[in-house]
Design a protein around this nucleic acid. Structure first.
Lengths: 152, 152
DNA sequence: TCCAAATGTTAGACTAATATAAAATTTTTA
DNA sequence: TAAAAATTTTATATTAGTCTAACATTTGGA
């Protein structure tokens, strides 16, 4: 069995492991619970792969899991998952609502970028987006002309 | 020895391999040539790791390398490297010059993001940045007030 | 010009993340 | 409620990317 080890300091997970946490949080939000199979399906991997990851996350106190039962987040896991989702949402909005990248691509790219950039960067992207909406994109017409400008 | 295999269709390299190409192009630009050791030093990996990657890139026609000699790009490799560098530069400028992320972080984050996002997204980020410079950030004062706004 | 230092190559091992196959357990249903 | 179906777990394998250590080649200084 492939074993995972923690990398650096606390709360410094790989992109793959952050995606597991994010998916668990999403499933809890949408279905009230997360099972191994749900996570596997959501991420498009096999449930055996999910098991390896969950065992690591249990050992490091990000999730709780009793054999053959539900997977849940600890408060530490919950906190981390919230941060990742927040990054995702901000990046998605920036790509989709401001740059007019199509939904699917925007989601994919947000999902990759969210593990690469720090909170400072994401917060600044959010502020920039807000600023533009507030002062320069007040109506549908402004948005449409931005869209056309970006399209070239 | 770890062997690398090609993944999907032509010109679809992993982030690590794209970084090798990018580094070779950078070294050629700055020193006129790239040796295994230079690449290793620039990327912070061992020269044995560079060898594995270069062997793969040679086999797939991105670079040329004769044993114990210089590493060079094929025209295919050159083209790909140019695209990656362009992405990097645009992302770096966006992060550093518009969002005021410090040089080192902006470079790191650009280096990660450049392998995750498509040309459409990068081109749109570039256009947005240009638009803002042209119409809303005409002088030092505008820039400074943006900086303060983003700082919060 | 030849030998020592620097540089490059190869072989083998390790880790993270995945997969397959089979065993263990739980759930469904006839 | 026992057998079948579904799910989860375990064991083992694979791949990309890295490392260390040993070996090979090139280069430069005495």
């Amino acid at each position: 069995m492939a074993k995972l080890k923690r990398n650096g300091s606390l709360n410094n997970l790989s992109a793959a492991l952050e995606n597991y946490l994010e998916t668990i949080a999403m499933l809890k939000r949408e279905k009230k619970y997360a099972r191994i199979g749900d996570i596997a399906k959501a991420l498009g991997v096999k449930s055996s792969s999910v098991n390896v990851a969950i065992n690591f996350l249990v050992k490091n106190n990000f999730v709780i899991h009793e054999k053959y039962g539900y997977v849940d987040l600890t408060s530490q896991g919950e906190m981390l998952a919230l941060g990742i989702q927040k990054k995702h949402d901000i990046l998605y909005d920036f790509l989709n609502k401001l740059l007019f990248i199509n939904n699917k691509t925007a989601d994919q790219e947000a999902c990759d970028i969210e593990h690469s950039v720090g909170f400072e960067t994401v917060r600044k992207i959010e502020k920039l987006h807000l600023l533009l909406k507030k002062y320069f994109l007040k109506n549908e017409e402004d948005l449409l002309s931005l869209k056309n400008y970006l399209k070239e």
